[in-house]
């Protein structure tokens, strides 16, 4: 049964890489079921993240957000700060797709704080880029300028010419 769980996870990832997102969801749902049977929180966390990703490419952004929220809860339970940051970043982007910019900003700020704690300058740069765009969408140009300047400063430091 444990091997079945791992195999469903691998199958889900293969379907995903092939662009077969419905099949990816089916496999990752099975993987999730087996992870729950075993109380395997790390595997459960991976399955929720993979499901969120597949729902993004199916255009089902609300479902993606629900799955990323479960990823975030489990990342916190598992005390994995890098995964927590990644989940916040995914949620920020998903709420941007849903045009809910206030929620997007909440999650991008959470991502920014963790990236700063972890001294992840690339993550911090991406958070600033995302925040600049979200504030622009809200018409808050002062905040947009603040984050655009921070993004520029970090991009120079990390040598990101694009």
């Amino acid at each position: 049964r444990a091997a079945q769980g791992r195999t469903y996870g691998n199958l889900g990832n293969t379907h995903y890489l092939l662009g077969q997102f419905r099949n990816a969801v089916k496999s990752h749902e099975q993987r999730l079921l087996i992870a729950k049977e075993f109380g395997d929180k790390a595997a459960e966390r991976r399955a929720y993240c993979n499901l969120g990703n597949a729902y993004i490419f199916l255009g089902e952004f609300s479902l993606a957000a629900e799955h990323y929220k479960r990823t975030l809860q489990l990342a916190r339970q598992l005390k994995d700060r890098a995964v927590e940051a990644q989940a916040c970043y995914s949620l920020g982007n998903t709420y941007t797709l849903l045009q809910d910019y206030e929620r997007a900003i909440d999650y991008h700020l959470k991502h920014l704080i963790i990236a700063q704690d972890l001294n992840d300058r690339i993550g911090e740069g991406r958070a600033c880029w995302s925040l600049g765009n979200a504030y622009t969408a809200l018409g808050n140009h002062d905040q947009a300028m603040h984050f655009a300047e921070k993004h520029l400063e970090i991009s120079k430091e990390t040598g990101d010419r694009s």
Binding site: Y16, A47, Y89, S90, L97, G132
Partner: peptide, 26 residues
């Protein structure tokens, strides 16, 4: 409409380009 919106926001577009080949491996 959602896809049109997506193209307008470059940071989201970049995230999705990365996400397309990102998987949580067993």
């Amino acid at each position: 409409t959602q896809r049109m919106h997506l193209i307008q926001i470059d940071s989201v577009q970049r995230w999705m380009e990365d996400l397309r080949y990102m998987t949580e491996v067993e």
